[in-house]
Simulated scan of single mutants.
Amino acid sequence: MPAKDIFHNAIKSALIKDGWQITDDPLFIKASTRISLYIDIGGKRAIGAEKEGKKIAVEIKSFLGMSPLAEFHTALGQFLNYVLALRINQPERVLYLAITEDTYRDFFSDPFIQLSVSTYQVKLLIFNPSEEIIVLWSD
């Protein structure tokens, strides 16, 4: 079983505070006969949640490494593959990339990153890890 991201418990708590029911922790997806995903990498973890009939999957990324751009490349590749896997097996789920508000302000405010997020339709869930609250849903 993959290890939890440093912010796993904070985002899980924030989702619960926001009225979401956690349904899968982690969310397992069988993309094909040979490919199975936990919607995680490098110790990151995904959460499946449901609220008022809406189902989501959340991939948590800390962006605490030496190169935020390298981490973004990895996160974007994962996001695109996870969207495809969900489309095949759980098309009712919407995937969100969860990042801290500091990461959103300091890195995702860059025009190139904003263009990438817009072009590839990356949905963001911005949260405050110390207060364990969701600050913004960006569709």
Rank of each mutant, 00 (worst) to 15 (best):
D24V: 05
D24T: 01
D25Q: 08
D25G: 09
P26I: 00
L27Q: 09
L27Y: 09
L27N: 13
F28D: 13
F28M: 12
F28C: 04
K30D: 09
K30E: 08
K30H: 11
K30P: 10
A31N: 14
T33H: 12
T33I: 02
R34M: 09
I35S: 14
I35C: 13
S36A: 15
L37P: 12
L37W: 06
Y38W: 07
Y38N: 15
Y38A: 12
I39F: 00
I41Y: 11
I41S: 14
I41F: 07
G42A: 10
G42I: 00
G43V: 00
G43Q: 05
K44E: 02
K44F: 00
R45Y: 13
A46N: 05
A46L: 03
I47G: 08
A49V: 00
E50I: 03
E50P: 03
K51D: 06
K51T: 02
E52L: 03
G53Q: 09
G53P: 12
G53S: 04
K54C: 03
K55A: 08
A57F: 06
V58N: 08
E59R: 03
I60Y: 01
I60R: 00
K61V: 02
F63W: 08
G65Y: 01
G65F: 00
M66N: 13
L69A: 13
L69F: 14
L69M: 12
L69Y: 12
A70T: 01
E71D: 14
E71T: 01
H73Y: 05
T74E: 10
A75F: 03
L76T: 04
L76S: 04
L76D: 08
G77M: 04
Q78S: 05
Q78N: 13
F79R: 12
Y82A: 05
L84E: 11
L84A: 10
L84M: 06
L86T: 03
L86Y: 01
L86K: 05
L86P: 06
R87T: 07
R87H: 12
N89R: 15
Q90E: 11
P91T: 01
E92H: 11
R93K: 15
